[in-house]
């Protein structure tokens, strides 16, 4: 296990990722400090998932650099992957395995001794209430239970950095609450979290700082209050967000058009 030294958890500088002629991430720079939850927000197709994948070493950047606890994932992939736990947006599970078989595999890959892994899995399975599904093939599980498997997979090796891409999707209220509390406890241990979500209310209540990206670029960054000042918007994070990605006027126009169309239909 990587010994976490003082410093930043993630430092991204001028990150670029192209898919053919399409620029998914464009000179993106941000820092995630230890002891904070950094929210990465953006509209659909803004480049959040691509950024997450580059941070985790799943995709090499076309240009720029990213380091996790000072290590470049393209040079030190093993060390970086040992230091983080990823809950991806697109569930990446072996659907033909049962959770029991799946955790056997994960524990083996992460070199966790059987007794340690058993203890951790046992407590996490209890916390997320999925004991009765432990021997059911993952393909047959509900979306929420699959999400629980993905979350347990990310937490199993107690990593200092959690990268959570839409982690609350599908979770019931109880499990969502447990995960949110877990995130707070994780920070107490000087851990760090990169949190990507579309649910702005949750991001507002959980995140220490927020980075808003649009078309692969960072358009605003700071605490919620700092963002309000920056984009000169008041009210909720949703309003700040829409203003930051310059969709506030667009949304107002769309709502107006919709209202008009519906009133025409009623006539």
């Amino acid at each position: 296990m990587l010994q976490v030294i003082n410093g930043n958890a993630i430092v991204a500088e001028g990150l670029v990722r192209n898919f053919g002629s399409k620029v998914a991430v464009d000179r993106l720079s941000f820092t995630v400090r230890r002891g904070e939850i950094y929210g990465l927000l953006g509209p659909n197709g803004a480049g959040k998932t691509t950024t997450v994948r580059m941070v985790c070493g799943l995709l090499p950047p076309t240009d720029g650099s990213v380091t996790v606890f000072g290590l470049d994932p393209t040079i030190f992939p093993i060390e970086v992957k040992n230091s983080l736990g990823l809950v991806p947006e697109e569930k990446m599970l072996y659907e033909s395995l049962t959770p029991r078989e799946f955790f056997d595999f994960i524990a083996s890959m992460r070199n966790l001794p059987s007794n340690v892994a058993t203890k951790r899995v046992d407590s996490l399975v209890k916390v997320f209430e999925m004991r009765e599904y432990y021997d059911t093939v993952i393909a047959a599980l509900s979306l929420g239970t699959k999400q629980k498997v993905a979350v347990i997979n990310a937490l199993l090796h107690e990593p200092p950095l959690l990268v959570l891409d839409e982690p609350l999707i599908g979770l019931d209220a109880r499990s969502a609450r447990v995960l949110k509390e877990f995130m707070k406890i994780h920070l107490e241990g000087n851990g760090a979290i990169l949190f990507s979500s579309h649910i702005l209310e949750i991001a507002e209540s959980l995140c220490t700082r927020i980075g808003i990206i649009d078309n692969g670029r960072l358009v605003a960054e700071g605490t919620v209050d700092e963002l309000r000042d920056l984009v000169k918007a008041h009210g909720t994070l949703e309003e700040v967000f829409l203003k930051a990605v310059q969709q506030d006027v667009e949304v107002a126009q769309a709502v107006q058009a919709l209202r008009h169309a519906l009133s025409e239909e009623r006539k």
Binding site: I78, P88, K91, M92, R110
Partner: peptide, 11 residues
């Protein structure tokens, strides 16, 4: 789907 998972493991 597992290819993404395998890539995220320290392997």
């Amino acid at each position: 789907h597992g290819a993404v998972l395998t890539s995220s493991l320290p392997l």
